[in-house]
C-alpha cells in the first residue's frame, strides 16, 4: 500500500515538474533575450542562452520614470482590488441568498455587461471621463477597472458563496444576529478562499491593463507600468532586448508579492476546508 502510494507521489511530482517546465520555458527564453547584448545577432537555430550575457538592456530599460509608473500601478491596482472585491462580495451575497425577481434580472444584466466589447464602448466612456474632468487621473483608471472587473468578481464570488451552506446563517439568525453581523462574522471569514482568488484575479487584470490606461492618461506622471514599458515598440520594429528586460522588471514585483504572501495565499485558499 505505502509503496504504491509513494510511487504515485513520485510520478505526480514528475508530472508537476514537467508541467512547470513547459509553463516556464517562455519565461526562460524571455530572460535569455533580455540578457542578450544588443550587438549579438539572434542566431539560427535559436540559442537558449546568450554567449555573453549582460545587464545592459536592464540599465537602458530602467529609467527614472519607472518609479512613478510603479507607484501609479500600485495605487490603481490596490484601490481597484479593495473596491471591486468589496462591491463584488456584497452583490454576490445578495444574488445567492435572496430570491427576488429583480435580483435575477440584475444578475443577468451583470453577465450581459461582461459581454460588451471594450473597443466598441471606449469612446463614449472616454467622453464621460472628459466631461467629469477625470481624464489623466488615477481615479479615472480606478473607476474603469472596477467596472470591468466587477462582473467577473461577482461571478467568482457567486460560485463560492453558493457553495456555503445556508444553515450557519440560519443558526446565527436564531441566535439573534442581524443580517449585517451574519454577513461580516460568518460569511466573510468562510468565503476567504473565494475572496483571495478574486483579489488575485482583480490584481492581475488591473496590473497589466493597457487599453484604458493608454487612452485615459497622457502625461508621464499618470502612466502605469504596462503603458510605460511600451516605449520599446516602434513603428518599424521592436527592441526585443529592452522590452523583455522591462517586462521582467514589471512582472517581478508581482512575483515577489506572491512569494512573500505565499503562505497567506495558500492559507487563504485552504481556509474554507475546515467547514463541514
Amino acid at each position: 500500500m505505502t509503496a504504491r502510494f509513494n510511487l504515485q507521489r513520485v510520478l505526480l511530482t514528475v508530472l508537476l515538474l514537467f508541467v512547470a517546465a513547459i509553463v516556464l520555458l517562455p519565461f526562460f527564453w524571455m530572460i535569455s533575450v533580455s540578457l542578450k547584448p544588443a550587438t549579438e545577432p539572434f542566431s539560427i537555430p535559436a540559442k537558449l542562452w546568450p554567449d555573453a550575457p549582460t545587464f545592459a538592456n536592464y540599465i537602458t530599460a530602467f529609467r527614472p520614470e519607472f518609479r512613478t509608473y510603479f507607484v501609479n500601478s500600485m495605487i490603481v491596482s490596490g484601490a481597484t482590488v479593495a473596491i471591486t472585491v468589496t462591491f463584488g462580495t456584497l452583490a454576490a451575497y445578495c444574488f445567492t441568498r435572496f430570491q427576488l425577481n429583480v435580483l435575477s434580472l440584475i444578475l443577468g444584466l451583470v453577465v450581459l455587461a461582461q459581454m460588451f466589447p471594450h473597443a466598441a464602448i471606449i469612446i463614449p466612456i472616454y467622453k464621460m471621463m472628459k466631461n467629469a474632468g477625470l481624464l489623466n487621473t488615477r481615479l479615472s483608471l480606478i473607476i474603469a477597472y472596477v467596472t470591468v472587473t466587477l462582473p467577473v468578481a461577482i461571478w467568482m464570488m457567486h460560485g463560492f458563496l453558493a457553495k456555503l451552506p445556508i444553515t450557519l446563517e440560519e443558526a446565527a439568525a436564531v441566535d439573534g444576529a442581524g443580517p449585517l453581523r451574519t454577513f461580516f462574522d460568518i460569511i466573510v471569514p468562510l468565503s476567504r478562499p473565494g475572496i483571495v482568488a478574486t483579489s488575485v484575479y482583480v490584481l492581475i487584470v488591473t496590473w497589466q491593463e493597457f487599453l484604458f490606461a493608454l487612452s485615459f492618461t497622457s502625461t508621464k506622471e499618470m502612466r502605469t507600468l504596462p503603458v510605460g514599458m511600451n516605449d520599446f515598440i516602434g513603428q518599424y520594429g521592436i527592441r526585443y532586448g529592452e522590452l523583455m528586460a522591462s517586462s521582467v522588471m514589471v512582472s517581478l514585483p508581482i512575483v515577489l508579492v506572491f512569494f512573500i504572501l505565499q503562505r497567506q495565499f495558500v492559507a487563504g485558499l485552504t481556509a474554507g476546508a475546515v467547514k463541514g
Partner: peptide, 12 residues
C-alpha cells in the same frame, strides 16, 4: 491612431 481618434471624438 486609436489614441488620436479617441481624443478627437471625445473632444479632448
Amino acid at each position: 491612431q486609436q489614441r488620436l481618434l479617441t481624443a478627437v471624438q471625445g473632444g479632448n
